[in-house]
């Protein structure tokens, strides 16, 4: 195996816990989409060409509720704004990657791949074969997301209330496993606490804009605490 193949496999392997944790989400999306009246081809189409995790089932819910289509597009945009922060965070590594690779890498950017890659970069800032590692993580996530969507499309017809099983718990415990080891000093702790408190104060803002606002406030608090001499 060449070393870039090895990095690709390593990226896929490191993402596995998060892929397992995200699996119920793909299934719930498939089930919700069918419940909302989409055809199986349309439901799978959304997973194939939009590929946006939580935004997908917010969209499915809104389609089911008969929302105005431009409003659905605006909601998806706001829910996905966090990717702007992820992509900006990765700019120092991406600047060494050829432009033609940046298109698929951007298309495949998800919470799961970002969490895995940034977790790796924390331990290994000069990660060799960054592109291969990233693509391994992303391709594994993408392929399994399609499989899970198909399972959900099938299950949605069999088990109509699968969306209410609390399957989202898998994703949160996985994110907890990533974030907790990152809390190493006062600044990182202050950032996390601010994100949590701000989220509780803004959760009822429309279109999930509270999530994006909370993240920005938490980042600012992290910077302020870090720069203040203790």
């Amino acid at each position: 195996m060449t070393s870039s193949t090895k990095a690709f496999a390593q990226g896929a392997w490191d993402t596995l816990p998060l892929i397992v944790a995200a699996a119920p989400f793909g299934m719930v999306f498939g089930a919700l989409a069918i419940g909302a009246g989409l055809t199986p081809a349309q439901a799978l189409g959304i997973s194939l060409i939009v590929f946006a995790g939580s935004a997908q089932f917010i969209a499915a819910t809104l389609i089911g509720a008969g929302a105005w289509f431009p409003a659905i597009i605006a909601t998806v945009f706001v829910v996905n704004l966090r990717h702007l922060l992820y992509a900006t965070n990765l700019m120092p590594q991406v600047q060494h990657v050829a432009q033609r690779w940046r298109v698929p890498m951007a298309f495949w950017l998800t919470d799961e791949t970002f969490a895995t890659v940034s977790n790796r970069l924390k331990r290994d800032p000069d990660l060799p074969h960054f592109r291969s590692y990233y693509l391994g993580s992303a391709v594994a996530m993408y392929l399994l997301w399609q499989v899970n969507t198909l399972v959900g499309i099938w299950a949605g017809a069999q088990i109509p209330d699968i969306a209410n099983w609390g399957l989202d718990v898998a994703m949160v415990v996985a994110f907890v496993g990533i974030v907790v080891p990152m809390l190493v000093d006062r600044a990182t702790l202050a950032c996390a606490m601010t994100a949590g408190i701000a989220m509780l104060l803004t959760y009822d803002w429309p279109n999930q804009i509270g999530l994006f606002a909370s993240a920005l406030i938490a980042i600012a608090v992290g910077v302020i605490v870090r720069e203040r001499p203790s």
Partner: peptide, 27 residues
């Protein structure tokens, strides 16, 4: 990117993932 923005971006994973955790867990 200015140095200050770069250091702010270090906090992105903690800020976004924690907000998602708190929202899904408590709301």
């Amino acid at each position: 990117l200015p140095a200050r923005v770069k250091s702010a971006l270090d906090f992105v994973p903690i800020a976004v993932l924690t907000a998602i955790i708190v929202q899904v867990t408590l709301v």
